[in-house]
Design a protein around this nucleic acid. Structure first.
Length: 291
DNA sequence: AAGCGAACCTGGCTGC
DNA sequence: TGCAGCCAGGTTCGCT
């Protein structure tokens, strides 16, 4: 579920509850998720104040008042739930997924405000790490992460430079987090459809021989920013019953033009949306208007 | 070195 | 109704 817009939606939902609060208690219910939890995880977190909650690529980063950062990744199925102080029985806000089974509540942060933040992740592809603040940029998790698509750097020239010489299909290059950070399967499919570009086209075909951006590169950069901004504004999307801060559904799923729409008519030309497999992942696209 | 397929794990859906 | 098989938003590893 979580691509950049979903992680950003989760960040915005958690921010008012977490920032400024102290982590009064940590309930860690298993030794690992995708990776083992850090040594003495609960001990290192207990008593720390959360000073800020940031996002980099698909990572959530809590700045703590000590020397460490708490880095969290939601994997495929991770979500957070906020349990407000004194409110059992009230509908709990859900962030980033659809937790149903308390057996998959793996970590709960008890806050000094009395609220609890519960992390649920059935598939356990998510993980949490503690890293020293000065090591942040050089840390293995972050040193090879590419540019933020909404950070103001992503334009046609940047795409042309990143994709120059790459024989991989455009779809695969856009999913490569070392180049652009935060795009996932849904938004890559959606952006390519909006740009009228085939996912099978070699990535290098967006650069000219001299490395300058083609009009296609300029257009693709524009629609990547556009689709992500629209999705963030809509509170992310969901394939099932993803909810955001106030418990309402993330709405962007209703705006998919190709993702999950195999055999349905393309909104542009009426032709059928095709589904192929690239690098082991499903790609949805219109074979007649994406060239 | 880049690119690709498999692996990690569980749940939900489809079809027999 | 039961069950086998397939599929899923991401990342990493290991093999060409």
């Amino acid at each position: 579920m979580p691509e950049l817009p979903e992680v950003e939606t989760v960040r915005r939902g958690l921010e008012p509850a977490m920032v400024g609060a102290r982590l009064a208690s940590i309930d860690q219910r298993r030794p690992d998720l995708r990776f083992p939890f850090p040594e003495r995880f609960a001990e290192r977190l207990t008593g720390r104040r959360v000073e800020a909650l940031r996002r980099r690529a698909k990572y959530l980063i809590a700045d703590l008042d000590g020397a460490e950062l708490l880095v969290m990744h939601l994997g495929m199925s991770g979500s957070f739930r906020i349990e407000k102080a004194g409110g059992p029985g009230r509908a709990a806000p859900l962030l980033g997924g659809a937790p149903k089974n308390a057996a998959h509540d793996h970590v709960a942060f008890g806050l000094s405000t009395g609220s609890r933040i519960v992390y649920n992740d059935p598939r356990r592809f998510g993980f949490m790490q503690l890293i020293a603040r000065p090591d942040f940029a050089a840390h293995p998790l972050f040193k090879n992460i590419g540019m933020e698509p909404l950070g103001g750097e992503l334009d046609g020239a940047a795409l042309a430079r990143l994709f120059a010489g790459r024989t991989a299909p455009l779809k695969s290059a856009l999913l490569d987090q070392r180049l652009i950070a935060g795009l996932g399967n849904i938004y890559v499919c959606e952006a390519l459809h909006r740009a009228g570009l085939s996912p099978r086209r070699p990535a290098a075909s967006l650069a000219r021989k001299d490395g300058s951006p083609s009009p296609r590169a300029i257009q693709l950069a524009r629609v990547i920013r556009e689709v992500l901004e629209e999705a963030v504004a809509a509170g992310g999307s969901s394939l099932r019953d993803h909810r955001q801060t106030d418990g309402t559904l993330g709405y962007f799923q209703h705006s998919f033009r190709v993702y999950g729409r195999e055999h349905e008519p393309c909104g542009q030309c009426g032709g059928p949306v095709a589904r192929i497999t690239q690098s082991g992942r499903a790609t949805f696209y219109c074979g007649s208007c994406q060239r």
